[in-house]
Nucleic acid binder design. Structure first.
Length: 616
RNA sequence: GGCUCCGUAGUUCAACUGGAUAGAAUACCUGACUACGGAUCAGGAGGUUGAGGGUUCGAAUCCUUCCGGAGUCACCA
């Protein structure tokens, strides 16, 4: 960044001041600067306590001396007041006007020049046996937003996903389709491809359940219950927990499905053709959902390509003594020295596991793109898995091991608890998008402010508002926290919401429209009001907000920023006339100001993947 | 049980990573401009930051012991 802004300037001034007066060297970045609380006079506040011990002085004394220094050194600072260890600094109007000009000169304010580094983010990573759901949406929004944030931080960004396109679950849909479809296709059934395949996945489970039910009446099953059930365990309870074992040991359908998987693995052409057909339908469906969510991937990795990877890497490091082989041939890593346990890396039959694959995939990605950072957006239920994975890669001495990060986020719950496919409580992504856009449309029609627009344009606006509301609602919350989402309750459009922020932008656009294209006057002499300064202080903080969000992999920080800026604008708007301002100078300044407010609102919301309508 | 995460107004969330009297929204109550767009604004009420102890100029934040909730501890992914 060429200009580091006013905050950095004050930090340097303080550091220099201390160096001049006391001879101690202070790192400017360590100087804590806060926005001054409303009750006190000033724009920024320097916290003096951290220095008093080191300098062996009192806050009062330090404050007095720094006050003198600041006033004499910087023409931008016109007032300094000391309140119990806090130094409140007031900047001149001219300093703020200069800051505004600086912002207006940067089309992409807040964006940093390229740093030559590459940032890779993985998210979504769906299975190809059913459509995306609400949980995926949170995942996707987080990952997409992180990519956008790192983009403006100057990184080259690679957006990727691992598509889990193989395995027993995928074979289940294939099996059901081949048995029950009678050649039905998404076209003939008039269903989106992923929903179509998901339908057969559901059918499969019904089929299996039927088979299981009748099996439970056989003598084999009854004897099993008598012998193996725990004291007092009911029949239902026992067979509920036995289902997985039944699938593996007794089920005819299960056996046939597993045979299908084996055939697929051996490359049987008929099975592979079936697999390709169903997956291609699913991808068509996913493409639509991704497009509606506004996300694009630069590179997809397919599990069918990567599931055998990692084996050689593990074997190689086994020879180096990093891992141990047990008698049965399985290979393990021992992480007990750092308080974790032993983890299996290769099965006794030599096949890979999830973690083996991840090792292999990380290697391939590094070879493909040489990323400096690799971020995995995956739910917090896999926290331990990633701790283990990163530790193993570190021990393997991978050059990229230090740049790996697991962006862990909390699950999305319903008011009734977890989403469960078995209980049919999954909130489908496509349905939800339709629903929120409809809600936005209903709200807009009630207001009636768009009635003069052609239907097509209206619908585009409904979409932006509905999507903005949904995205904002999900992304404004700290990723670590679980979210309870009630699909039955209508989406919020008032208060801390996407539409509230969009509305601030729309109000500005409305004024600028009335003003006409060519309006661009210099402001001249003008004394700033507090609410105007507030907007400048906030906008001035935007680059720091981006950095903070990037450092913490936390888009919710940007979401909060956008809201605060919108709120400050709404307040200002209520209080000050723009088009009929009290003077030409006031009008000119305010127009310039709100142009930049609109710009920063749009830029910051874009980082969350939220679009701004010009009207609403 | 071991480890990890979470616990803040009735509810949903903040709190610049240890800084001033813990802030918003929502719901509730009271108000505002004959409209630069009311999807707005102002005000009121609402808190022992789960509980106790410690660290220090200063703690929602760090340490510790409890309490409550979630996740995870597979030759599953």
């Amino acid at each position: 960044m060429k200009n580091k802004g006013i905050i950095a300037e004050i930090q340097v001034l303080i550091a220099n001041g201390i160096s001049n007066i006391y001879g101690n060297e202070i790192n400017p970045d360590s100087v804590v600067i806060n926005q001054t609380k409303k009750e006190f006079e000033g724009d920024y506040t320097v916290v003096l306590f951290p220095f008093v011990k080191q300098l062996r002085t009192s806050p009062m004394d330090l404050g007095d001396k720094l006050s003198e220094y600041l006033k004499s050194e910087s023409s931008k600072i016109i007032g300094v007041s000391l309140v119990s260890g806090f130094l409140n600094v007031q900047l001149s109007d001219q300093a703020w006007k200069d800051q505004l000009s600086l912002i207006s000169n940067q089309e992409n304010y807040g964006e940093r020049v390229g740093n030559g580094k590459t940032f890779m983010v993985e998210f979504s990573s769906p299975n190809t046996n059913k459509p995306l759901h609400l949980g995926h949406i949170r995942n996707i929004l987080l990952g997409d937003s992180c990519g956008k944030i790192y983009k403006v931080m100057g990184y080259k960004v690679i957006v990727t996903q691992v598509i889990n396109d193989r395995g027993i679950a995928v074979c289940k849909s294939m099996y059901a389709w081949s048995k029950l479809s009678d050649g039905e296709t998404p076209d003939s059934a008039n269903l989106k491809g992923d929903h179509f395949v998901g339908k057969y996945y559901v059918k499969y489970n019904q089929l299996l359940e039927q088979e299981y039910q009748s099996w439970q009446k056989t003598d084999t099953a009854k004897n099993l219950y008598k012998e193996k059930a725990k004291e007092g365990q009911s029949v239902e309870d026992y067979f509920k927990s036995y289902k997985n074992q039944y699938f593996n040991e007794f089920s005819k359908i299960g056996a046939e499905t597993k045979e299908m998987l084996l055939k697929w693995e051996s490359g049987d052409s008929e099975t592979v053709a079936l697999w390709q057909k169903l997956n291609s339908w699913v991808y068509e469906g996913f493409d639509v959902t991704y497009k509606n969510l506004g996300v694009e991937f630069t590179k997809n990795y397919y599990e069918s390509d990567t599931y055998k990877l990692g084996r050689s890497a593990v074997e190689e490091h086994l020879e180096k003594g990093l891992f141990e082989r047990r008698e049965d041939g399985s290979i393990w890593v021992n992480l007990e020295d750092i308080g974790m346990d032993k983890k299996i890396l290769l099965r006794s039959d030599g096949t890979s596991l999830y973690i083996t694959q991840d090792i292999g995939t990380a290697n391939v990605r590094y070879e493909d793109f040489h990323p400096d950072k690799m971020v995995y957006v995956v739910g917090d239920e896999q926290d331990y898995h990633f701790k283990v994975l990163f530790e193993i890669l570190k021990r393997m001495g991978k050059p990229y091991a230090d740049g790996m990060y697991h962006l862990s986020y909390g699950m999305v719950d319903l008011p009734t608890g977890k989403m469960k496919s078995r209980e049919g409580t999954i909130v489908d992504a496509d349905d939800l998008l339709v629903e929120v856009i409809k809600e936005a449309a209903d709200a807009a029609k009630e207001v009636g402010s768009l009635d003069d627009l052609p239907i097509g344009e209206q619908e585009e606006i409904f979409r932006k508002i509905g999507m903005g509301a949904l995205k904002y609602q999900l992304i404004r919350i700290n990723p670590r926290k679980r979210i309870t989402f009630d699909p039955a309750a209508s989406i919020d459009m008032q208060g801390v919401t996407g539409p509230y922020i969009q509305n601030a932008y729309v109000r500005i656009q409305s004024i600028l429209r009335r003003l006409g294209e060519g309006y661009n006057q210099n402001e001249g002499e003008y004394t700033l009001f507090e609410d105007e300064k507030e907007l400048l202080i906030l906008m001035n903080h935007y680059p720091y907000t981006i950095k903070e969000a990037a450092d913490n992999y936390d888009p919710s920080i940007v979401a909060t920023f956008s809201y605060n800026l919108a709120k400050a604008f709404h307040r200002f708007y209520q209080e000050r006339s723009l088009l009929n301002a009290e003077s030409e100078e006031a009008k000119n300044f305010r127009i310039k100001l709100i142009r930049e407010v609109a710009k920063v609102l749009k830029l910051s919301m874009a980082l969350l993947g939220i679009e701004m309508p010009n009207r609403m």
